[in-house]
Amino acid sequence: MSVRDENIIEVEGLTKAFGDFKAVNEISFVVKRGEIFGFLGANGAGKTTAMKMLIGISTPTSGKAKVAGFDVFTSAEDIKKNIGYMSQKFALYDDLTVRENITFFGGIYGLKRQQIKNKSNQLIEELGLEDVKNQLVGSLPLGWKQKISFSVAMLHEPKIVFLDEPTGGVDPITRRQFWEMIYKAADEGTTIFVTTHYMDEAEYCNRVSIMVNGKIEALDTPQKLKEQFKADNMNDVFLKLARG
């Protein structure tokens, strides 16, 4: 197993309240280094709020959380330097070319000019983008964009990558290629934190947590969850959990 016995995310009693409403209600979990951790829940269950706290762009109301060794209350800026982030909503600039996107994101992650050059050549070669490297990203198929944006989120070799519903709407084959990339990254020691409400995505993860109304109601490997809820797949697990 590529998962190391070293906690890279530690969360204890983390809470975010908006007035009386607790969007995230005392959640606790740990993620090990090199683990693929699925963070599931229905729309509005609190996934996004929880993730925003972990990536250091939202301050928790109470509780404790450490990401890559840094406290979310005091070292949000250090966290941002050590993580990568990719979301389905915003990934790349459609009106820049593939190469310009890579250069731009390399730049904001603080990579040196030569590093960016090497990295982008490597990336273009690995993803087979030689023919399209000077095309606008907007003209590429969705699946390609998602693969490129994952690679871009990995440019600065972060310890953890946060993926927000990464493969929605992508064709089945490209989706597999995407997961192969994730497996490779995890094998090399990068921790993957995926939030999604696509349940089939959950089955690719080492462990998954399922959030319902701000609380984590289940946390285990997909296999054990299926046994626990006597379900054939994660979709059924989710249905049983959500319907109480």
Binding site: M1, E180, K184, E203
Partner: peptide
Amino acid sequence: ASNPHQLISLLKAYPTAHSVYPFGE
């Protein structure tokens, strides 16, 4: 198997492989 990344690479390299796709666990 224990390491999905290696598993995929090995399966793809298996001489008589037709298709190899990750599919959940």
